[in-house]
Structure formats: C-alpha cells, structure tokens
C-alpha cells in the first residue's frame, strides 16, 4: 500500500493531464489484442522450435547437435531488435516478403526459441537416466520414451521458466511497433507524439502491460499447481 502511495505521488509530480489520458485510454487499450495475439503465436512458435532445438542439442547426431548449438549461440548473441529488422528487411532480398505481423512473430519466435531451447534441454536432462533406461527396457522406441516418459515429467520443470519467458515476450512484443503493428506501444506512441504528451500515453500502455502480466501470472500459478499435484502427494507420503 505504501509503495502504491509513492507511485501515486510520483505520478502526481509528472504533472499528468488526466482528462487527456481518459480520452485516449480506450484507443490505446484496443492494442491489447495485438499484443496478446503476437505474444501467444510467438510463444507457440518458440516452444516448437525449443522442443526440436532441445532434442537436437541432446542428440548424438553431430549435424543436429551442431545446427542447434549454432542456432542458440547466434540468436542469443544478437539483439532482438536487430533480428526483427533483419527478418523484416533482409528476407525480402531473398524473395521472401513477410508482412509486419508474420515478420514480428517469426523474429520473436526464433529469438525466444533459442532461450527456451536451453530451458527445455535443462528440463529433459533433469529426468533421471534410470527412467530412460526403464522406458527402453519396456520396449519403447525413442519417440515413445520421449512422449510418454520424459516430456510429461520435464514439462513440470519447463513450465515455470517458460511462463517467465512468456512474460518477457509480452513486453518484447512492443518491438513490432517499429514495423507498424498497431499494438499497445505503437498506439501509445502515435497518440503521445502527435499531442506532445508521450508520458501520459506511455503510462497507459505500461499499465496495460502490467495488467496483462498479472492476469497471466494468475493462470500460470494455477497451471503450476495443477502440474505439481503428483509430486506433492508423493513427498507427502515419503515424509
């Protein structure tokens, strides 16, 4: 509560024009849809990439391992905004012309896929060797072992970290504003600039990012509790 009072005091000192903020709040709010859409599609793309990336990083096949390791190194070693512009400006030179939204989703997906490859790899590696051997000794193939034994357990470890990535992605999705996607940040900037009141509109956008993050955190907490059911019961018996 005290922190909230401090925040309100600071806002007060900004000398904000509240009628102006109220007037443009609905317009900026309409950007939430694109922000969530871009973030959701990007996290799906990133998850798919990360799954293959992690399996390839753990593969004994030198080609898969090499490609995945190179991908993680290159993407983690370059700024996201550079990747967005490379995909938006660079690909057309090769004859692949992407619109602003697909280019943004691919860039975010590729970037977060690299970070999440490492999360997924860690999750898969945390599953004991004995489990894998047990699965094989039951006659499962590699694919069956992954799908039925390793991944379901690995997800429990992967989900919290992935949720964290998604929260980061929600905010990094603002970078697609540079390509002209009318999401939260784009709308806030346009309205702010033309009225010489950037502060007001950026605060509105910040508020909405925060609200979306809080809502997402709630659902993530529920999902984690759901996935943790099994372990909690077992530890309960063990002690």
């Amino acid at each position: 509560m005290g922190i909230f009072a401090v925040l309100l005091y600071v806002f007060n000192r900004f000398n904000l024009n509240f009628p102006f903020m109220l007037k443009y709040l609905p317009f900026i709010m309409k950007g939430v849809g694109y922000t969530i859409l871009v973030s959701l599609l990007s996290i799906i793309a990133a998850s798919i990439l990360a799954l293959f990336g992690a399996i390839a990083r753990l593969s004994k096949n030198p080609v898969f391992y090499g490609v995945a390791t190179f991908y993680v190194s290159l993407i983690r070693g370059t700024p996201l905004i550079v990747q967005i512009f490379v995909i938006y400006l660079g690909l057309p030179q090769m004859g692949i012309v992407l619109g602003a939204i697909p280019a943004g989703i691919i860039a975010l997906g590729v970037c977060y896929g690299a970070y999440m490859t490492e999360i997924f790899r860690g999750g898969i590696q945390s599953i004991g060797r004995g489990q894998i051997e047990a699965a094989y000794s039951l006659g499962m193939t590699y694919s069956q072992m992954m799908r039925r034994v390793v991944l379901p357990q690995a997800f429990r470890i992967i989900i919290p970290a992935t949720g964290n990535e998604f929260i980061a992605m929600l905010k990094d999705s603002s970078l697609v504003a540079f390509l002209g996607v009318w999401e939260l940040f784009f709308r806030a900037q346009r309205v702010g600039r033309q009225n010489f009141r950037n502060m007001e509109t950026l605060i509105i956008a910040a508020l909405f990012y925060w609200i979306v993050t809080i809502i997402f955190q709630y659902f993530q907490g529920r999902l984690e509790a759901h996935l943790a059911r099994g372990t909690r019961r077992i530890t309960g018996i063990a002690h």
């Binding site: 400006l89 057309p92 012309v97 619109g99 002209g180 009318w182 784009f186 346009r190």
Partner: peptide, 17 residues
Amino acid sequence: FVTPDWDLIVAGKWGGR
C-alpha cells in the same frame, strides 16, 4: 494505409509490402 517506421519508409526496398 500502413504505418511502418519512418526509417523503413525512406530506406526503400519495401518488398512490395
């Protein structure tokens, strides 16, 4: 209308977008 960043407009090579 589309609304890309000014830098992207003056850079040319719009790729038909």
